[in-house]
Amino acid sequence: MPKSRINKSTAPVSGGGANRVPVKINASGTPLWYKIIMFGLMLAGLAWLVVNYLAGTQIPLMLELGPWNYLIGFSLFILGLLMTMGWR
């Protein structure tokens, strides 16, 4: 079988392509106050749930809130988790 000829015009040309330099979207980063609030909400929710579970019957405020205790604790924790989606 005969070999095909390679034309100079069909040879691949290097360079001149698209610019492929990665660009960081959030170059400044997340502010410190945002991180403090995020972790604070998560820790507050976790602490609320642990205290309610261990000593809920001995604390008058926990008795008054009744079943709302778990909703408050989970809400605080979930708000902190939602903040992990990022700062824009």
Rank of each mutant, 00 (worst) to 15 (best):
M1H: 15
P2A: 14
K3N: 11
K3T: 11
S4L: 14
S4H: 09
N7I: 01
K8L: 14
S9M: 02
S9C: 00
T10I: 08
A11L: 15
A11D: 04
A11Y: 07
P12L: 09
P12I: 05
S14E: 06
S14L: 12
G15M: 01
G15H: 04
G16Q: 06
A18H: 07
V21N: 00
P22M: 10
V23I: 13
I25S: 08
N26K: 12
N26V: 08
A27I: 04
S28V: 09
G29Y: 05
T30I: 15
P31I: 11
P31R: 13
P31H: 13
P31E: 11
W33P: 00
Y34P: 02
K35Y: 03
I36G: 01
M38H: 03
G40H: 02
G40Y: 02
M42G: 07
M42H: 00
M42S: 02
L43T: 08
L43F: 12
L43D: 02
G45I: 02
G45S: 05
A47G: 07
W48T: 05
V51R: 06
N52I: 00
N52H: 12
N52Y: 13
Y53M: 10
Y53N: 10
G56M: 06
T57A: 13
T57K: 14
Q58D: 12
Q58R: 11
Q58I: 02
Q58K: 12
I59L: 14
P60Q: 07
P60G: 06
P60E: 08
L61R: 07
L63W: 03
E64C: 03
E64I: 10
E64G: 11
L65M: 15
L65E: 01
L65R: 06
G66L: 08
P67E: 07
W68Y: 14
W68F: 14
W68K: 13
Y70F: 10
L71C: 05
I72L: 15
I72M: 15
I72H: 11
I72A: 15
F74K: 01
F74E: 00
S75Y: 00
S75G: 12
F77A: 05
F77P: 00
G80I: 00
G80C: 01
L81R: 02
L81V: 12
L82V: 09
T84K: 12
T84L: 15
M85F: 14
M85V: 05
M85G: 11
G86S: 04
G86H: 04
W87C: 08
W87T: 06
W87S: 13
